[in-house]
Amino acid sequence: MKVWVYGNDINTDMLFPGKYTYTCSKPEEIKPHLLEDLDPEFAEKVRPEDIILAGKNFGCGSSREQPVVGLKATGIQAIVAKSFARIFYRAAINQGLVLIECPGAKESYRPGDIVELDLDNDRINVGGKGFLFPQLPPEIQEIRAAGGLLSYTRSKLTAAKEENE
């Protein structure tokens, strides 16, 4: 498991360049370009179970959702950051990608530290030091639990339709 460490204000152009926005939408088209201008090694070397650890304002900029769709498709456990830009935050909920806002985790991390996530107990351990992070509001947990907004919406609409029939 690798921890990919980045700084503040990692914008969506760094996560997925704008020039591809209107020609790549599918996860397999997006993945080779992930973090292309920020960290050329990332797309090739990222593995499921990896974690991204970043500073404040992660995902700022454009509303394009390819960074979220692509990162979700890599299978990474979560992105842990000091803070997230709001459209990116919503997009992650909508794709079921786990984002954790935890300033202490980023500050305490030293190269080589082991990072362990315990989503059931809202806890992250960094180099043996534990941090609690706030839970999502229940309405939002429901969307994430359904596997993202589209499956959530689909099940709500289907239930409403069946009720009417």
């Binding site: 509303s63 959702e65 997009a91 909508n94 309405e139 907004l149 919406t153």
Partner: peptide
Amino acid sequence: TGIDRTEAAALLLTGKTWFR
């Protein structure tokens, strides 16, 4: 305010969404 594509897709179906 701005939203992502998936949320826009759900809005086409439901016409509503959540706001914090």
